[in-house]
Design a protein around this nucleic acid. Structure first.
Lengths: 115, 115
DNA sequence: TCTTGACCTGGAGCGCGCTCCAGGTCCGAG
DNA sequence: CTCGGACCTGGAGCGCGCTCCAGGTCAAGA
């Protein structure tokens, strides 16, 4: 199984080493496997998960939201709980998307006006 | 010309009085007309502008971005400058929108999985 | 073995976007 | 004229999401 050093993981994920540690402390990723000497060894799975987290962060979700997301996917919850949680998050994202569309429309109007 | 007290403006715009003052300090709105005694009197135009600012804030633009936006619309800039600035902002918003779509897709997959 | 550099931990620091507070002023109702 | 509440200013405080730092450990190469 290939394993990645912190530096390589930061490189490949586009997330800084400090931020990776921060995410781990906050419970968004990991716990990350360690070598005998205590160094972190990330796996491809970890990398994938980091990608998910990054995707949500870029979409504007906060750390707290993401903690909830992780909890719901990992812990024992009924499918109904999971689905309702996920739907709530989805609705929130839709509202953000609507705000974005409004803002873009305003920009388009201004662009048209000055063009 | 109708004019609005700070409290009424906060009420109608959904932005707190403190935040209205903050936006004014930051140059995002105003300067707001004052009464002889020094109290602020907002106009309908101010309210409209506050709505624009709020729209952009909700879409995720930062205060600095908005200061740039205000500057470009108010100060003397060539139409080309304005348009290129606006297009840049638009592109940034599009990227945010793309991130949102990706995140929503992930949620949809999870929802489908647990449904 | 020694050096060097990547990594470790715990905690402090920082920029953003508000939010709150103290201490004072304005002004309409009684 | 007095009272009280809305408003004023300048500045401190706060939560978030990192980011940086000190002081120490691990491990590969010379």
């Amino acid at each position: 199984m290939t394993s990645l050093s912190p530096a390589a993981t930061a490189e490949r994920s586009g997330v800084s080493i400090d931020t990776l540690r921060y995410y781990e402390r906050e419970g968004l990723i990991g716990p990350i496997r360690r070598t005998a000497g205590g160094r972190r060894e990330y796996t491809e799975d970890d990398l994938f998960w980091i990608g998910l987290i990054t995707c949500f962060r870029e979409a504007g979700l906060g750390i707290t939201d993401l903690r909830g997301f992780v909890a719901i996917l990992r812990a024992e919850h009924s499918p109904e709980d999971r689905v309702s949680f996920l739907r709530e998050r989805r609705t929130a994202l839709e509202q953000r998307a609507a705000a974005l569309r409004r803002a873009m429309q305003v920009l388009d109007e201004k662009i048209a006006y000055y063009s």
